[in-house]
């Protein structure tokens, strides 16, 4: 059976400033306390990953990912227009962050 489809407003843009790996995140909420603008709220389920609530207020300071104590639990995710670009000087090939 298909998943339930909710009637929702458009998703805020950008919406995913960090990607959280639910298999690794221990729900310690260090990121919730670190973020100066409350991008996250704690998950009602204790030990579960936090919820990204105010994604569009993120100023991309990166403190949540920098201070996350669990390796691999949180990956910083630049929005598409902000993904940095660079060039290999020798080959001239331009790359961009995935």
């Amino acid at each position: 059976m298909a998943d339930k489809v909710f009637a929702l407003p458009n998703v805020q843009t950008p919406s995913v400033p960090v990607k959280i790996n639910p298999d690794k995140c221990i729900g310690c909420n260090t990121c919730v306390e670190t973020c100066q603008i409350d991008v996250f709220i704690p998950n009602p389920k204790k030990g579960a990953p936090p919820i990204i609530l105010h994604a569009e207020e993120c100023w991309y300071c990166g403190c949540c990912a920098t201070d996350c104590p669990t390796p691999g639990a949180m990956e910083f995710n630049w929005p598409l227009p902000l993904k940095p670009r660079w060039r290999n000087k020798e080959t001239g090939v331009v790359s961009q962050l995935k």
Binding site: C61, G62, T66, F76, P84, R87, N88, V94, S95
Partner: peptide, 20 residues
């Protein structure tokens, strides 16, 4: 700081590359 981390993990090499 987070730019250095993510770009390094994403393959940028400051001895080889140039940032746009």
């Amino acid at each position: 700081k987070i730019m250095v981390k993510t770009m390094t993990e994403g393959g940028f090499d400051h001895t080889r590359d140039q940032i746009m």
